[in-house]
Design a protein around this nucleic acid. Structure first.
Lengths: 131, 131
DNA sequence: ATCGTTCTTGACTGAACGTTCATCTATTCG
DNA sequence: CGAATAGATGAACGTTCAGTCAAGAACGAT
């Protein structure tokens, strides 16, 4: 009974993941996620519970995709830098991803970190400056 | 004429650097810096201009110390993850530090990133949880 | 058709954010 | 000493934050 979701969960999670990858966890506001997904605050909260819940889901989906792509690496970078030290669940997801990945993961992370810092904000955007 | 500074600038910058290293840029509030330094908001602003100004100073001093210590590496991690992609000046300071450092800096960064994520919050603290 | 359930919406909350500023105090110089 | 000036102080600013909720719309089942 009742209404059906009018949005695709996977797509919404992916859009949020994009925001987290670019602007980090603390640097991404709910309004940023609202703007990126086209959903409304309430829908986001009733479907995903919290900002942290959304991030965890994004990290898990990215992990499930298998290979350590740039996208997954970026999310892991954010998780390790901002959340892992104070959030054991996120720490274990992040390290789980690294453990399942071949090669020198520390080097992979470091290289991606450097590339990321030099990347054009592309998305043809106008962004807030450092406050 | 007038009064002299009653606090030591270097010491204040170092205290702020500690906060930035642990909780990141966006994750560190002015109140956190006020608490860590014992200064008052106004003094912090009249002496250093802004949160960003304080971070830049912390990064520069750390760089000036020469070797790529863990402390400097942590600050560079924060700079690259949160600020460099949208702040050219910080980007150039951070890359300047890396360019002056020997060895595979990407790997150094990656290793430190991983260690950092697993470190005890030590400072015998009680901290805010993930919001 | 109607009832029950689920989803959608956006106004709202209170706290926290970075920053400013008027006021006060201490110090220096003549 | 007294005037001038720099630093110290903390209240207050407007904004943005993450999160809530009451109301209504849309749908499935009977």
């Amino acid at each position: 009974m009742g209404r059906n979701r009018t949005f695709d969960e996977d797509e919404v999670v992916e859009r949020c993941a994009e925001v987290f990858r670019r602007t980090g966890y603390e640097g991404s506001s709910i309004d940023d996620l609202v703007a990126a997904t086209g959903l409304h605050r309430g829908s986001l909260y009733s479907a995903f519970g919290s900002k942290r819940g959304l991030f965890v889901l994004a990290l898990r989906r990215s992990a499930a995709s298998g290979a350590l792509t740039d996208a997954t690496t970026d999310l892991v970078l954010v998780a390790l830098m901002e959340l892992a030290w104070r959030d054991p669940e996120i720490r274990s997801i992040a390290f789980g991803i690294l453990d399942d990945s071949p090669g020198d993961t520390a080097t992979t992370l470091g290289r991606r970190l450097v590339d990321r810092a030099v990347e054009t904000p592309d998305h043809s955007d106008t962004r807030k400056e450092t406050s």
